[in-house]
Nucleic acid binder design. Sequence first.
DNA 1: CGCTCATTTGACAGAAATCAAAAGCGGTGG
DNA 2: CCACCGCTTTTGATTTCTGTCAAATGAGCG
Lengths: 256, 256
Amino acid sequence: MNVVSMHRMSCECQACPVPGSSFCARASGQDKDGIAQLAHRARFKQGQSVLMQGDESEKIGILRSGVIKTVFMTEDGDTQVLGLLFPGDFIGRAFESEYRFSYEAATDIDICLFQKSSFEGLLMGSPALEHAYLLSTLRQMDKMNSWTCLLRGRTARERVAAYFTFCALHDGETDATLDLSGTHPILELRLSRTDLASLLDMTPETFCRCLHGLADKGALHICAPHRIELTNIARLRELAGPPLEGLVEKPQRAVI
Amino acid sequence: MNVVSMHRMSCECQACPVPGSSFCARASGQDKDGIAQLAHRARFKQGQSVLMQGDESEKIGILRSGVIKTVFMTEDGDTQVLGLLFPGDFIGRAFESEYRFSYEAATDIDICLFQKSSFEGLLMGSPALEHAYLLSTLRQMDKMNSWTCLLRGRTARERVAAYFTFCALHDGETDATLDLSGTHPILELRLSRTDLASLLDMTPETFCRCLHGLADKGALHICAPHRIELTNIARLRELAGPPLEGLVEKPQRAVI
DNA sequence: CGCTCATTTGACAGAAATCAAAAGCGGTGG
DNA sequence: CCACCGCTTTTGATTTCTGTCAAATGAGCG
């Protein structure tokens, strides 16, 4: 593991940039202490691997800032980007013996790392924490399902349009950073064409053609390769094919 | 809800056909009593809907026998089969306010139904049960991920070949029933061409052509529309494209 | 037997992958 | 400041794959 820096963090949780609905936020004061005692802070630079598919599962992490790619590698070496993780998401999962995927820093990232065994100990010791972890897991599953619905039954161009539409509506839950200061929203893409294409299950060439196709249709403007201005979101939405409404996350019912 | 029959089941858990690794099997004696008290047995005929996407989430179920389709419906009425559920799997999920999908009986089925609020009460009252539910959920997520890997980055014919390969290796975890009594394994498909095609994200016509293409290549023999003899599994596996092993077992470590 | 529905086949147009090459971008060193 | 290098992105030409529309065949059933 190519850790750039790593140290105990005890009271750094105060300064945690992760939004409020996450695992830690649901923890009680005492549980928070337990978390803080076991957590190590770690940073990785863009491109570095955090956990490797096939390795014995020894660590589990929570993303603090940045974006992580979940990458699946077939035996013949091909890789595909299965999904992205955002602040608050878990890297790896509890109660598994071996990582099923690799996790690679898509940007410079900042994470909390736990020994998996210690983390599992925490969960087993606190029903409230385990409940929080369950809720996180369920939410993660919902996200995966939404993603599946977004990809399936759509043409390549529709997938690209759907992705950008999603970016515009869900700041912080996509690869892109959203700039709303101007007349039109502007997306700053953080992934390469290759990674974005893989994420949307197409080739980079097709992604590129679709992107420029959307520009030709007046849905967006390509300021620079990684800078996309969404000049006409209604048009973009039309070009995304079947409506996306069913996919947005519903407010979660409050359960302690 | 088109329930065919439904009644309290108390001590029927003894005769539960669900395999041992499931949620209930992990419950302690006392928890089992709690489950049995709240469970209602219900049967549905093939084609009936068990839970409807968009409805308020009032029930949660565990499949006892048969196969259920998880169906997503876009606002314009199109449907796609997202996945299948098998004995031991949960229908719906705890701690959500609204069903995100519809669940439709793909065969005649037999399920345990709970009031969702009661079921959640059980979980909240027993850390061991909640832990069991967490494990079920995590396992479900792994299955979804495997499925995603099977579908992505493959041509239509590869997906069909990969699906049948999977059927041959994982009896009870697919639509097909497996008959190993003869020289070659024989699959009895329980879903229609339309549903199978939707499950594999293609049109029925494409599915059909791929199936007959595999037959032409000598990988299998179509005894009857729903009766497939896998005459050459090695060939079938080749035609499935990238190896599938990574989905169950571990590939080798890569370098950063 | 005649009906209905599911499956299969055919023809074709459109979509997407592939292969190849050009253009653009960001750094580095002269 | 500019030329050069390596990389990513873009474009082009072509082949392959897949969806669509239409029609034929086959299976199940009263």
